[in-house]
Amino acid sequence: MIKRLVSIIILAVVITSLFMVLSETAPFGDDETVVSHRYIYKGVDETGSANLVTAVVLNYRGFDTLGEVTVLFVAATGVGAALYTRKHPVRKNKVEASLIVKTGSKLLFPMMLLFGAYIFVHGHLTPGGGFQGGAVIATAFVFKYISDTRYSIDHVGFTKMESASGMIFAGLGIMGLLLGGYFLLNILPNGTPGELISAGILPIIYIAIGIKVGAELTGIIDRMMGVEA
């Protein structure tokens, strides 16, 4: 009990003071930073992407994103390694799903895949992108897992897709290096901002990321589903 009290007091001190300082230095609703100013005013011209967040994520900080994808990949590998079993994991769901869930999942599964694909294909135009789209796709597979106790993904196919999309991302970066002199250079024309085919390589990268993230998250879920508790 005394432990909880102490921790609450310490927390109160730390958090309050930190946020007091924060609201002094960065008041809510204040103007953008210097570097963002450039992104906002030049972003569309420089990258051709209507969605400025995408412009930042894939163009200005594209290398960062490659690292991020790598982190996710390493995490998926780590999950696989931590939950490794000698024989292929067999799912052991105790409860069958109800008829509503089963029928609903059959109806919704293609829609969810389509929605996920829509999100990452339009990553440079509308809110969302590869990571979000990938997450939606993975959710579709979660649905599948819930509704069917014997369902299991095609591991080989997923691994191939994931590797291929990762290689597309890295390959585009190296193409930029070869053609223009630096990694992840936008080697395709920018086009008209706001159209589907615009913003150079950004849509391609986001599609690759979407497939990769979807495959990886699904792989993580598959691993965890196969665990005997």
Binding site: S7, I10, L11, V13, V14
Partner: peptide
């Protein structure tokens, strides 16, 4: 970590 932060702030 938290105690250190609190001490630093105080």
């Amino acid at each position: 970590v938290m105690v250190f932060l609190a001490v630093m702030i105080l």
